[in-house]
C-alpha cells in the first residue's frame, strides 16, 4: 500500500507542473493586463509611465523568466496582492476559506448521506414504487436550477415563515452574543445553502449508486454468498458493498475541488462570504492575482482529489495495491 502511494504521488509532480504552465500561459494570452487595468483608471498616464510600471512589476522580462519567478513565489503560497484593495491574495482567500469549506463539506456530506441509501434501496428494490418515486424526485432536484430552488426556499422559510435568515453567514449582532449563540447563528445561516447544494447534486451519485449495486448483485459471487447461507446484511453490506463502492470512490474523489469552488451561484445568491463569491468578484473586477491563485488552488485540489480517489481505490481493491 505505502509503496503504491509513493509511486502514485510521484505522478503528481508532472501534473502540477502542467497545470501551472497552462494556467500561466492562458493568462498571458488573455486580452488586457494588469498595467492596462491600472492605467485605464487614469487618462493622464503616459506610455512612458506605463512602461515604467511594467518594468516595476517585472512584466518587461521574458515570459519564461516571469513564469519561473511566479512559480517560485507560488511554491511558498505567495500569490501577490489583490488589485482591488492591495491586500495579499493569500489573506483574502484564507479569510473566506472556512465559510466555504464548512458549507461544501456539509452539503457534500448531506448529498452522500442521502444518495447512498436512496441508490442502494432503489437497487435492492429495483423497479418498485420506491425506486420509481425516488427516480422522479432525484431528477426533479437535478433539473431544478439552483437559483430557483434557492429563491423559493428563501421566500418560504425566510419571508413567509420567518424561520431562517436569508443572507450572509452571521447576524448583525454576531459579535455581542455568547459562543453557543454564535454557533447556532451560523448553523441557521447554513441550513438553506446546504439544502440547496445537497439536494440539487443528489441525482448523479444516487443513480450511480443504484446502477453500481444492481450490476454487482447479479454477479455469481453474490449468488454464492447467498447460497453459503450468509445473512442479508452480510451479503449486501460486505460482499456487494465492497464491489459496488469502488466505482463511486472516483466520483466522490472528484468532488473535492467542489469543496472550494462548488457554490459560486449559491454563495452569490445567499450573499455568503465564501470563496465562490470571491472568485466571482475577482473575475468581474479582473483581479488577476486573485484569479490566478484561485485557479491554481482549485486545479491542485482536483489533482489531490484524484490522488485520494486512487488511494481509496487501492485500499478497496486488492488488485491495485499488489501491482
Amino acid at each position: 500500500m505505502i509503496p503504491f502511494l509513493l509511486r502514485r504521488s510521484l505522478h503528481l509532480i508532472p501534473t502540477l507542473i502542467g497545470i501551472s504552465l497552462i494556467s500561466f500561459f492562458l493568462m498571458q494570452l488573455a486580452p488586457g493586463g494588469p498595467v492596462d487595468q491600472i492605467a485605464d483608471m487614469n487618462p493622464h498616464v503616459t506610455p512612458e509611465a506605463k512602461a515604467r510600471i511594467r518594468s516595476d512589476l517585472g512584466l518587461d522580462r521574458p515570459i519564461p523568466a516571469q513564469y519561473v519567478s511566479w512559480v517560485k513565489r507560488m511554491a511558498f503560497l505567495d500569490f501577490g496582492t489583490s488589485f482591488t484593495d492591495g491586500r495579499p491574495v493569500i489573506r483574502k482567500i484564507s479569510e473566506r476559506l472556512p465559510a466555504t469549506i464548512l458549507l461544501n463539506i456539509l452539503s457534500i456530506g448531506l448529498m452522500i448521506l442521502l444518495a447512498l441509501p436512496i441508490g442502494w434501496l432503489s437497487a435492492i428494490r429495483a423497479n418498485s414504487l420506491f425506486d420509481k418515486a425516488m427516480t422522479v424526485l432525484v431528477f426533479v432536484g437535478f433539473s431544478m436550477p439552483t437559483y430557483a430552488l434557492a429563491l423559493w426556499l428563501m421566500i418560504l422559510f425566510g419571508l413567509n415563515l420567518g424561520w431562517l435568515p436569508i443572507s450572509g453567514w452571521s447576524s448583525l449582532n454576531f459579535i455581542e452574543v455568547p459562543l453557543w449563540r454564535k454557533a447556532l447563528d451560523i448553523a441557521q445561516h447554513l441550513i438553506m445553502p446546504t439544502l440547496v447544494l445537497g439536494l440539487t447534486s443528489l441525482a448523479g451519485l444516487s443513480r450511480y449508486a443504484r446502477n453500481s449495486l444492481l450490476e454487482v448483485i447479479h454477479q455469481d459471487y453474490i449468488r454464492a454468498a447467498r447460497a453459503k447461507g450468509l445473512s442479508f446484511r452480510r451479503v449486501y453490506g460486505v460482499h456487494a458493498a465492497r464491489n459496488a463502492l469502488i466505482p463511486m470512490v472516483t466520483l466522490v474523489g472528484l468532488m473535492l475541488p467542489d469543496i472550494i469552488g462548488g457554490g459560486v451561484i449559491i454563495e452569490t445568491i445567499f450573499a455568503y462570504p465564501g470563496i465562490g463569491r470571491l472568485g466571482y468578484e475577482a473575475i468581474m473586477t479582473r483581479d488577476y492575482n486573485l484569479i490566478m491563485a484561485l485557479t491554481v488552488i482549485s486545479a491542485a485540489l482536483t489533482v489531490l482529489g484524484n490522488f485520494l480517489a486512487d488511494a481509496l481505490y487501492a485500499y478497496a481493491d486488492p488488485r491495485i495495491r499488489y501491482k
Binding site: 454468498a225 447460497a227 447461507g229 460486505v238 465492497r242 486488492p318
Partner: peptide
C-alpha cells in the same frame, strides 16, 4: 445452506474479487 451447497460454473465470477480467500472461507 447447512444441507445444500453449490459450485458455480465460472470460478472467475463466483469468488468475490475484493475479499481475501480467508475472509470468504472464514465466514462460512
Amino acid at each position: 445452506a447447512r444441507r445444500i451447497q453449490m459450485i458455480f460454473q465460472d470460478p472467475f465470477a463466483s469468488l468475490n474479487p475484493k475479499l481475501s480467500i480467508g475472509t470468504q472461507l472464514r465466514e462460512v
